[in-house]
Each structure stands twice: as structure tokens, then as C-alpha cells.
């Protein structure tokens, strides 16, 4: 029996099928207490920028899973803006880029960013996801 130690995780992805599946895995495996879901970068960065105005630590996720190809604001632009405010958020946030892109240019670019912990290629597998949550906890 696992005990969930991650309080809040966040998924930023426009693929609803994928989001539902990950949700299902997290629920089944009880990987975290709560889950935030945004369908693109814009909505999520607005969320983080709003937190910055009135800091409430419990609203800040410990883990972010970020997709790259999204409408309106893609993962890259999110990362650019997120890096600027990351240090002002009073909590350690581990960010994973999760994308179906196997383009080495994307992979290297993402890995070179200090705010990116790692690059996961879709499909993620269940045990991988589990170990990430355990590690972050």
C-alpha cells in the first residue's frame, strides 16, 4: 500500500484523452492528493502569476507535467514565462516536459533549460510515473 506524499500535481496538456488516462493512473495508484489540469500554457501561466499576487503555498504544485505542442500558448512560451516567476514561488517545483515529439532539437532544447528536470517521451509508462512521484515526494 502506497502512501501519497505529493500534495498537488499539475498537468498542462491539450490532449484530453491523455489527461484522462494519466488522471486514471494517479487515482488508481494514489500518487497524489490533488491534480490541477490546464489545457494550454496561457491558462496555467495565468494561474501561477495570480498565485504570485497572494502567495498561498498549498496552491502551488510540487510536480508539473508540461506538453509542448498546445494551442494558444505552447510549452516553450510557458517555460519562458514560468522561469521568470519560478524563484518567487516559495516552493520547490519539479517540472517535466512530456511530449510526443521525438525531435532531437526539441529534446535538447528542453533539457538545456534549468527549470526542466527531464524530458519524457509519450507514451509515459505507469512505473515511470510512479517513480517520478516517489522521487519528488
Amino acid at each position: 500500500m502506497k502512501t501519497s506524499t505529493v500534495e498537488l500535481a499539475c498537468i498542462i496538456d491539450d490532449d484530453s484523452v491523455y489527461v484522462n488516462l494519466v488522471k486514471k493512473i494517479i487515482e488508481t495508484k494514489k500518487l497524489c492528493e490533488n491534480l490541477l489540469v490546464f489545457s494550454d500554457g496561457k491558462q496555467s501561466i495565468e494561474y501561477f502569476e495570480a498565485i504570485l499576487q497572494n502567495l498561498e503555498a498549498e496552491q502551488i504544485p510540487e510536480i508539473i507535467f508540461l506538453d509542448l505542442n498546445m494551442p494558444v500558448m505552447d510549452g516553450w512560451e510557458f517555460l519562458e514565462r514560468f522561469t521568470k516567476i519560478k524563484n518567487k514561488l516559495d516552493k520547490a517545483i519539479t517540472l517535466y516536459v512530456v511530449s510526443s515529439s521525438i525531435n532531437p532539437l526539441d529534446i535538447n532544447r528542453a533539457k538545456s533549460l534549468s527549470s526542466v528536470e527531464d524530458y519524457l517521451i509519450k507514451p509515459v509508462n505507469i512505473s515511470e510515473l510512479e517513480s517520478i512521484f516517489t522521487k519528488t515526494a
Binding site: 488516462l21 494519466v22 509519450k122 507514451p123 505507469i126
Partner: peptide, 17 residues
Amino acid sequence: SHNLRSHSSNLSLITQL
């Protein structure tokens, strides 16, 4: 590669699940 991959990766995830 990109668009078909996203579906195939979902399929693979669902079978795992």
C-alpha cells in the same frame, strides 16, 4: 510522426492501464 504518435502513445498508455 507527430500526430499519429500522440494517438499511438495514448493507445499504448491505455493498454498498460
